[in-house]
Design a protein around this nucleic acid. Structure first.
Lengths: 142, 142
DNA sequence: ATTACTGCAAAGCATTTGCAGACTG
DNA sequence: CAGTCTGCAAATGCTTTGCAGTAAT
């Protein structure tokens, strides 16, 4: 019952809202937007303010428990816990679903940047196309 | 003097503003934001409205001459002409410079998406870290 | 002359910030 | 109790949209 203590970010007070946000993130395989999280919590009785969710997420990111990512053609950031380290995703261009990818193209690859001294810290890979469901509905021309 | 005609998107009227936007994009190696473009044009006398630049860019993207991209930790979209097909970039986390990459990790790679039927249409790779200049200034701990 | 394009103003959205009261440690 | 969090409201910044006048074909 108390094993979650370990992943609680140091220095952050344990409040109901934060536990709720963490809980939602934990019970989710894919990344979620602040609004998604807010909606899932709000499903109950106690409303949680969007701005609060943003602040909580910001803290989580700063503390290293969560990561913020942005996918193409979307102006909404999504967040996920670092323990679920699906670093890469496929994004459906029709329904905008975000599907985890199991392998990583950067494993055996050295980027050749047009700046010799560029120090690579991390990377972000994103594949886009159409998921099984959307493929049947609308076939992209070209 | 007229060889640029070829790349002019079909169906779009040739106006001064559009030529200016296209011109700015052509004289630039890296991708630019709408505001960048606006600023570069505005450098002269004739002010061009930001909203107009956005509309022009939208047309260019729709016509297939330009591409819109979004890099992590930035809420500003950037645009570039398709002829300069630097599909991938390194992004400096300090000065936010966007530096082209010469190779692509996806060349000999098949993504394993957790949706067997996922039809891959394209991809987006982004490397982040510190450019030569920023590396000297602030050394990232850890 | 028609139709598309632009200046300009104002709206729209995701995200951030300010403040006072509420809660945690 | 002190310091941090949260509800709430309002601001911010990028991008989009509406409208009427202007320019391109």
């Amino acid at each position: 019952m108390k094993k979650e203590q370990n992943l609680w970010p140091a220095g952050l007070k344990k409040t109901k809202t934060r536990e709720q946000v963490l809980d939602v993130l934990q019970n989710q395989k894919g990344p979620l937007s602040a609004m998604d999280i807010c909606a899932k919590i709000d499903g109950g009785e106690n409303a949680v303010w969007l701005s609060t969710v943003y602040r909580v997420l910001e803290q989580f990111v700063k503390s290293g428990v969560a990561t913020k990512l942005t996918v193409m053609n979307s102006d909404t950031a999504v967040y996920e816990l670092n323990r679920f380290c699906h670093k890469h995703y496929a994004v459906c261009m029709a329904c905008h679903k975000i599907i985890p990818m199991d392998n990583c193209p950067m494993e055996a690859f050295t980027p050749r940047v047009q700046d010799d001294g560029f120090q690579v810290v991390g990377h972000n890979v994103e594949v886009y196309g159409y998921c099984t469901k959307c493929r049947q509905d609308e076939a992209p021309e070209e």
